[in-house]
Design a protein around this nucleic acid. Structure first.
Length: 560
RNA sequence: UGGGAUGUCGUCUAAUGGUAGGACAGCGGUCUCUGGCUCCGUAUGUGAGGGUUCAACUCCUUCCAUCCCAGCCA
């Protein structure tokens, strides 16, 4: 990971840390990644993970993994496990620094009693609806709760009885006494504890009351001696409350909350709610659908952790809302896999090709390098014979200007094999081309000749008798619009779902070496793109996801 | 129309009073047994107006635009 840290650009958060180190405010940096275990992680979380763990790595500090599990109604063990898997997959390690906010429930409760004893919190009997009314609006101040002036003794008694389960859910809450007239709604006597008679995935039925995020998060950070508590922009308004709680309590430290902009990616959604709707609405095939921006989805699609880390470094960290071009993500993938992925040949849209002057029944083994970018990549043998399949797109009966693939009378190179020339085109009654008849030059074995003549076009192929059927899954963007901010008035992102985001191709063939592959293995199919073996793969039908295509300057020029 | 924040190439991001730079995308070329890769070249930007200054993305000021906040969610 050393080579990566070299290229990690600086950002305003690292500048703050540099200052804090230089001023002596800190001599050791501790960050944390604090997911709520109520859903799957997505690539936006990956940004946060790489930020927090990356800082810990570069400053030789620590990064804690802490589950923010204060709401048992929404959280499950299943998510805890998938989150840990995703963080590990991304290449980060929290060692023994695994924490749960629920581990602090006792401490949090003690601190709450301190708040009460100091006259800074009270038990409120207002219902949820009443509370909303009393809160006021964005432009009007709120009103004090009629219960705000209860005695400390009464508050303590009531709070303990809340803890002991004497009151029904929603009937009472513990609230901080701050300022109902504050222009910041978060400061209008916020709820600190609510009654919830739900079993918690870790503490079971120990608790009848659970602390709220604003109270829990800052205290957890302080207890863990976090130095810099990094969160997303929507918590900016919560910072005064974060600081308020820590100022009232005898906590061992007072971390600094710093907010940064969350990641948005073009042509997709990134909110838990929308992602959930895609899954539950059957628009995608689950959380790990290769089209999903979830970590599980991009992993299944075939993206590498290296490419995601590189991406996180390249997008930077700032406070301005932004939408990053999906192309940058595919760029990072190509850059990674170009150096590492072995090349294979596969034909997605097969067109039969027969070499008239090649002996029937003859089989040759052609030598093919596995990766021209990798000197240690080695070579493999690919069987060649009289009958082949080539890509239908690689033949054009009446070639356009600039075309240098196959066309009648034109000599092209079969990659790793021979020069061939198209002599005849066979069509069916509908005029569809069904077969190409060629001749080959026996002196061009290996794909070159001694006379050094130039053959511009090189195409990929598979031998009919030796190739295997494969399934190939092609994906496109989930949405037809790049930027969610461009959703028209009165419409939702659901009105922009791309109906053609998935294409299952079962007519493809691959070279025989593709028979033995394992889930997750990645290849470059020559001239087609990068592919990863899907979890649905089987011996009978090796199954590949196209991660992304290759850059195709020919196609781009044609589309102009 | 309360409060909080943010505006730099198409996109993302640097420049902390001293030459507006990088990356992706684009375009053009080079190279090539992948129309891939490589390499080279190239265009495009400080939201607007005022002010301070020898000098402003940076400081002041007015405006404009966008985002966030009225869960006993996080």
């Amino acid at each position: 990971m050393d080579s990566e840290s070299k290229t990690t650009p600086t950002n305003f958060i690292r500048n703050i840390i540099d200052d804090d180190l230089e001023s002596g405010k800190h001599d050791y940096i501790i960050t944390r990644f604090p997911p709520e275990p109520n859903g799957y992680l997505h690539i936006g979380h990956a940004k946060s993970i790489c930020l927090n763990f990356g800082i810990a790595r570069d400053y030789k500090g620590q990064c804690h993994l802490r589950f923010d599990d204060t709401n048992p109604a929404k959280e499950e063990l299943e998510y805890v496990e998938s989150i840990m898997e995703d963080v590990r997959w991304l290449g980060w390690d929290w060692d023994e620094r695994l924490y749960y906010a629920s581990d602090y429930f006792d401490q949090l409760y003690e601190y709450a009693e301190i708040l009460i004893k100091d006259g800074k919190a009270f038990v409120c009997d207002l219902s949820i609806d009443e509370l909303r009314e009393y809160r006021g609006t964005l432009t009007e101040p709120g009103k004090d709760s009629p219960y705000k002036n209860r005695s400390i003794e009464e508050n303590l008694d009531l709070f303990r009885r809340m803890r002991d389960g004497e009151f029904p859910e929603g009937s009472k809450s513990l609230r901080a006494k701050i300022d109902m007239a504050s222009p910041n709604l978060n400061m209008r006597d916020p709820v600190v504890y609510r009654i919830k008679k739900t079993e918690h995935h870790r503490t079971g039925d120990t608790w009848q009351i659970y602390p709220m995020y604003d109270y829990t998060h800052c205290v957890s950070d302080a207890l863990e001696m976090i130095t810099h508590s990094l969160c997303t922009l929507e918590f900016e308004d919560h910072r005064p409350l974060y600081d308020w709680f820590l100022d009232q309590l005898p906590v061992p430290s007072h971390p600094r909350q710093i907010e940064f902009a969350r990641l948005n990616l073009t042509y997709t959604v990134m909110s838990k709610r929308m992602l959930l709707e895609l899954v539950e609405g059957g628009i995608v095939d689950g959380w790990d659908d290769p089209r999903m921006p979830t970590i599980a989805g991009i992993r299944r699609r075939g993206f590498t952790p290296e490419s995601i880390r590189d991406f996180a470094d390249r997008i930077g960290v700032a406070k301005a809302n932004s939408v990053v071009d999906y192309e940058l993500l595919t760029f990072c993938l190509r850059e990674d896999l170009n150096k590492r992925a072995q090349r294979r040949m596969a034909v997605l849209d097969p067109l039969k090709l027969t070499i008239r002057n090649y002996p029937e029944g003859k089989i040759e083994e052609m030598d093919a390098e596995n990766n021209p970018e990798d000197p240690d990549g080695g070579h493999r043998k690919v069987k060649f014979s009289r009958e082949l399949y080539i890509e239908r797109d690689d033949f054009m009966e009446e070639p356009v200007k600039g075309w240098f693939r196959m066309a009648p009378g034109k000599e092209v190179r079969l990659k790793h094999a021979y020069y061939i020339t198209c002599e005849e085109v066979i069509k069916d009654e509908n005029g569809e081309i069904t077969e190409i008849i060629c001749s080959y030059d026996p002196n061009s074995r290996g794909g070159w000749t001694e006379d050094g003549r130039k053959v511009r076009g090189t195409i990929h192929w598979v031998s009919q008798a030796h190739c295997i059927p494969i399934e190939v899954r092609l994906f496109d963007h989930l949405l037809t619009i790049a930027d969610l901010n461009d959703v028209e008035e009165g419409k939702s992102y659901l009105d922009y779902i791309n109906p053609d985001s998935k294409e299952i191709n079962t007519k493809a063939f691959g070279e025989s070496s593709l028979r033995d592959t394992k889930e997750g293995e990645k290849f470059q199919f020559l001239r087609l793109g990068y592919f990863a073996v899907d979890k649905d793969t089987s011996e009978d039908m090796p199954t590949f996801n196209r991660i992304t295509g290759l850059r195709d300057s020919w196609a781009r020029a044609q589309n102009k």
